[in-house]
Amino acid sequence: MREAYTRREAIAAGLLGVAIAAFVWGPVILRPFSPSRAVDLGTLRLPEDRAGAQPRPSAPRVKTAKATPGSRIDINHADAAALQTLPGIGPTLAQRIIAYRKANGSFDDARGLLDVNGIGSKRFDKVERWVEAR
């Protein structure tokens, strides 16, 4: 009894296996589609097309232009909704401004916003013309 195939026997067995697979599956794979088996792509429904389907969470977010405030906002008395109207200030930064104000007292001037975590010089430059500290 032999333990292993020679290299030549292994190659021949592999080629024979490929030939048998091509003989069996070739006509199935290579046959043309008949009109009776054609798929009408107009009748297919994607999961998003079904009623009650939820949008995919990985859909890209659409940037919308933020409305600028009509007048200057007093950062010592503004609530979170008023602060969010400022360019570059979202809900998180609005809450940080309010928390900083509660912890450290009212701002002396608008430049006090630079002490709030998350507001640097670039963001402050965007906001500066819209804020005041009374």
Rank of each mutant, 00 (worst) to 15 (best):
A22Q: 12
A22E: 14
F23G: 15
F23I: 15
V24C: 11
V24F: 09
V24R: 11
V24L: 14
W25Y: 13
W25V: 14
W25N: 14
W25T: 13
W25I: 13
G26P: 10
G26L: 11
P27N: 08
P27A: 06
P27G: 07
P27I: 09
V28Y: 11
V28I: 14
I29T: 12
L30N: 12
L30T: 12
L30Y: 10
L30E: 09
R31P: 04
R31G: 13
R31K: 15
P32Y: 13
P32M: 14
P32D: 15
P32N: 15
P32G: 14
F33L: 15
F33G: 11
F33E: 15
S34F: 12
S34H: 13
S34M: 14
S34Q: 15
S34G: 14
P35V: 11
S36T: 14
S36G: 13
R37T: 14
R37V: 14
R37Y: 10
R37I: 12
A38V: 09
A38D: 10
V39I: 15
V39W: 08
D40C: 03
D40F: 08
L41G: 09
L41C: 07
L41M: 04
G42W: 05
G42N: 11
G42Y: 07
G42L: 04
T43P: 01
T43D: 03
T43M: 02
T43L: 07
R45Q: 11
R45W: 06
R45S: 09
L46D: 08
P47A: 08
P47N: 06
P47Y: 02
P47R: 04
E48P: 04
D49W: 02
D49A: 08
D49M: 05
R50C: 01
R50L: 09
A51Q: 09
A51M: 04
A51K: 06
G52S: 02
G52P: 05
G52K: 01
G52H: 00
A53L: 01
A53V: 01
Q54W: 02
Q54N: 01
Q54C: 01
P55G: 08
P55I: 03
R56T: 00
R56Q: 00
P57H: 00
P57R: 10
P57F: 02
P60Q: 08
P60K: 07
P60W: 02
P60L: 03
P60H: 05
V62I: 11
V62P: 00
K63H: 00
K63Y: 01
T64I: 04
T64A: 02
T64P: 00
A65D: 09
K66P: 02
A67L: 12
A67S: 12
T68I: 12
T68N: 10
P69V: 10
P69R: 13
P69N: 13
G70D: 10
G70L: 07
S71R: 10
S71L: 03
S71Y: 01
I73W: 07
I73K: 13
I73T: 12
D74C: 04
I75A: 03
I75Q: 01
N76I: 06
H77E: 10
H77P: 00
A81K: 05
A82W: 00
L83P: 00
L83W: 07
Q84F: 04
Q84K: 07
Q84R: 09
T85A: 05
T85K: 09
T85F: 02
T85D: 03
L86C: 03
G88V: 07
G88R: 00
I89L: 05
I89G: 00
G90A: 09
G90K: 06
P91L: 03
P91N: 08
T92D: 01
T92K: 05
L93M: 09
L93Q: 03
L93V: 07
